[in-house]
């Protein structure tokens, strides 16, 4: 990201700086303190779990995986080719966790590492699909067309949701990822920031812009009025 893009990203959030989130405002000073203490305790617990997992404790590794796998799936969703199976890619990430996570030294690096592994797995699927399509003479845009065009979105998802997700996939990378992370599990801006390695204000701005672009796309495609 360029310096200019960073500045522009900050601008709207900076303009509103000082207006505390509603949950804090509504809770008052005491409630704010309780939430802050709760979040600190959760961070300490997660940190302990990550340290134990990196030290080779199998139970902690299992717990760590269960804690993170849903948002990892969202990252895969944001980057995978349309035809690739989400569960296959998620299993690849799970395998990398077992085989390589112990090489990490910093528990704070777990989230960015998981994201990198997920993105690599998604891109590797894209490359293998493109190569295969060249080998058998198919369009690279739809390398597995012979597999009856699977969208990669669960068949049980309602039509409006499926179409909106497809539109979300058209958003720029920088907006698509935080938007999907926010949509899954309701991650906080701080958590999304720790995954993407960005400040909370940038996350807020990107989600806000992503939502606006999605709204405009939805209207353009007749999903919304």
């Amino acid at each position: 990201m360029t310096q200019t893009e960073h500045r522009v990203d900050y601008e709207p959030a900076e303009a509103l700086r000082g207006s505390a989130p509603a949950r804090e405002a509504s809770c008052g000073p005491d409630g704010e303190g309780v939430i802050a203490r709760f979040e600190q305790a959760a961070r300490r617990s997660e940190d302990r779990e990550a340290r134990a997992a990196l030290a080779g404790d199998e139970e902690s590794l299992q717990a760590l995986w269960k804690r993170h796998r849903r948002w990892v799936a969202a990252i895969l969703l944001a980057h995978k080719p349309r035809w690739a199976d989400l569960d296959d890619l998620l299993q690849e990430v799970a395998l990398a966790v077992v085989r390589k996570m112990h090489e990490l030294r910093d528990p704070g690096a777990v989230r960015p590492w998981l994201r990198t592994v997920a993105i690599n797995a998604a891109h590797a699927a894209g490359r293998s699909g493109a190569k295969r399509s060249r080998d058998i003479g198919l369009s690279e845009e739809d390398p597995h067309a012979e597999r009856n065009t699977r969208s990669g979105i669960s068949p049980g998802v309602p039509e409006a949701g499926r179409r909106l997700m497809e539109l979300a996939m058209e958003l720029p990378d920088g907006y698509r990822e935080p938007l999907l992370l926010k949509a899954v599990h309701n991650l906080s801006y701080r958590e999304i920031g720790s995954i993407l390695g960005l400040p909370e204000t940038t996350i807020e701005t990107r989600i806000a812009r992503g939502r606006r672009q999605l709204r405009e796309l939805a209207i353009e495609h007749g999903i919304s009025e």
Binding site: R69, L77, A94
Partner: peptide, 29 residues
Amino acid sequence: AQAQRDDQILRRAVGMAVGVAASVELPAP
């Protein structure tokens, strides 16, 4: 209103799509 509606639809759709994660366990070491 539109943003609220889009968010609800997207949350439900993404939640269903990533629901598969619950069944993906770590392989045995």
